[in-house]
Each structure stands twice: as structure tokens, then as C-alpha cells.
């Protein structure tokens, strides 16, 4: 959970400081990619964590 929280904080700090949107593009892109990948992986792996 740590990476998305960090990126969220970084992106929000820049937004609140009135920095241009282009500057937070990297953070937003990786947040989106990370969410997509990990939601998929977690859904796939959840059954493996449950007792058979």
C-alpha cells in the first residue's frame, strides 16, 4: 500500500502548490498503472490465500 500513498501525497502536494498539471503526469500515470495491475493480481490471488 505504501507506493500509491506516497505517489498520491506527492501529486496532491504539487496540485495544492499550484504546479502545472504536466508536472504530476508521471505520478498520475504510475498510480493508474499500479492500481490496474494490483487490483487484477489481488483478485486473481485471493483464492490462493483462502483455505481449501
Amino acid at each position: 500500500m505504501l507506493p500509491p500513498v506516497m505517489w498520491g501525497v506527492q501529486a496532491t502536494a504539487r496540485l495544492l502548490a499550484g504546479r502545472p498539471l504536466g508536472e504530476i503526469g508521471g505520478w498520475l500515470r504510475i498510480l493508474g498503472l499500479y492500481d490496474l495491475v494490483f487490483v487484477t493480481v489481488c483478485l486473481l490471488l485471493f483464492p490462493a490465500l483462502m483455505d481449501e
Partner: peptide, 15 residues
């Protein structure tokens, strides 16, 4: 359990 964490690590590598 370890396998699940190991797969999470694999997914982090390309990042």
C-alpha cells in the same frame, strides 16, 4: 502465503 507475496514482488519488478 509466501507464494502470494512472491508474485506481488514479481509484479513490482517492471515498475
Amino acid at each position: 502465503f509466501a507464494a502470494v507475496v512472491g508474485i506481488m514482488g514479481l509484479v513490482l519488478v517492471p515498475f
